[in-house]
Design a protein around this nucleic acid. Structure first.
Ligand SMILES: [Zn+2]
Length: 354
DNA sequence: AGCCTTTGACCAGCG
DNA sequence: TCGCTGGTCAAAGGC
């Protein structure tokens, strides 16, 4: 339930660049608006891929992408013995056209979701593990409750160019930086600063392989709508109006800055085609896609255990209400009705989700 | 004034 | 049990 609200709607929504817009105008083409992600990887750790036949019928359970078998082209992606998702070979592509997004955004359930967001209604009850610890707690108890590895972490890993990072519509506050063993670049830790108690976080690390590319890992789900220009009062800092800094530099380490964002006018979501690929994306593509009309959704090769796109290591049931399940949610990830996913079947000749 | 980054210390998970 | 490691806290100073 609450731990599986990872869905296509959110993926779709994550790909737009500005505040919510009426669905009827969402897909106006703008050649100036690059797609936000160069490529991204979805990770859903330590949760089983639920059985659609049983889980979607649960009371209060909204089916999500993970409820469905995953297909690339016409080949099904299935868990191996280690419960890790294995991509079929050779690579196959699923072309996702804007029709898919049009359909998704205009689906009644999504319209309802958009309406809910425009009214800034809360998405979900407050989380207790991350970011929502009363200030009255002592330092000691606070630390004790915060520090924990997240076995049910759901993350969205993106490989972003500097330009793309600038387009991040959310505001972030850096709260830490760490040298990661085996990595030549430090990892920066950011929390969402747009809204009090927002549990969303992101990790930014410069890519080993690609210059001007950063590996940005989003964790958690925003519990508020995207900030707009006139929402700055919430953020309340003059720094946010600065356009000087794109990347802050400290000790020769670049880190993304919340001040670097570019706020696009509403209705300026791009009309794109998506290619879902198993193949390696040439590094040259990563920086160029923003100017093209194609975006690659790269699924990493399952070369090693930690390179899995999808992992599911536990056999915990979907409906589990274990407190551990509430640690982290995906940014912009939202539950979606069964209908919309079923309707996706009819798109692309039923090849995407059959 | 208030939010930001920096940075060393702290903490928990894990092998 | 212990050391390593990644993640987080929070004080201090900057903008
Ligand atoms: Zn947020």
């Amino acid at each position: 339930m609450a731990n599986v609200d990872w869905d296509l709607f959110s993926i779709v929504r994550s790909c737009k660049t500005s505040t919510l817009t009426p669905p009827s105008s969402i897909f106006e083409t703008s050649p100036h608006t690059p797609f936000y992600f160069d490529d991204f990887t979805l990770s859903h750790e330590n949760n089983p891929i639920p059985n659609i036949n049983t889980s979607i019928n649960e009371t209060n359970h909204y089916p999500t992408v993970l409820d469905f078998p995953i297909f690339v082209g016409q080949q099904q992606i299935t868990p191996n013995d280690n419960n890790q998702m294995v991509f079929p070979k050779p690579a196959a592509y699923v072309e996702i056209t804007t029709q898919h997004f049009d359909f998704a955004y205009n689906h009644p359930s999504v319209l309802h979701e958009l309406q809910r967001e425009r009214n800034q209604l809360p998405i979900q009850e407050p989380r207790t593990r991350f970011g929502i610890v009363p200030n009255t707690l002592s330092h000691h108890s606070k630390r004790k409750s915060w520090k924990r590895k997240n076995k049910n972490t759901k993350t969205l890993e993106c490989h972003l160019s500097v330009e793309k990072i600038k387009e991040d519509p959310w505001t972030w506050r850096k709260y830490g930086e760490k040298i990661i063993k085996g990595s030549s670049h430090p990892r920066s830790y950011y929390k969402c600063s747009s809204f009090n108690d927002c549990p969303a976080k992101k990790l930014v690390e410069k890519s080993k392989n690609k210059d001007n590319t950063y590996v940005v890992t989003y964790k958690g789900q925003h519990n508020h709508k995207e900030p707009k220009c006139n929402d700055r009062s919430i953020i309340g800092t003059s720094r946010n109006n600065s356009s000087k800094r794109v990347l802050s530099t400290a000790k020769g380490v670049e880190s993304s800055s919340t001040q670097s964002k570019v706020l696009y006018p509403e209705n300026e979501l791009t009309k794109k085609h998506l290619l879902v690929s198993q193949e390696d994306v040439p590094s040259s593509n990563v920086g160029n896609l923003s100017s093209s009309d194609v975006m690659m959704l790269q699924f990493d090769e399952p070369k090693s255990s930690d390179a899995q796109v999808f992992t599911s290591e536990s056999t915990k049931s979907v409906g589990s209400c274990d407190d551990d399940d509430y640690d982290i949610l995906i940014p912009n990830m939202r539950a979606m009705s069964e209908d919309i996913l079923l309707d996706f079947n009819h798109l692309n000749g039923g090849r995407l989700f059959s």
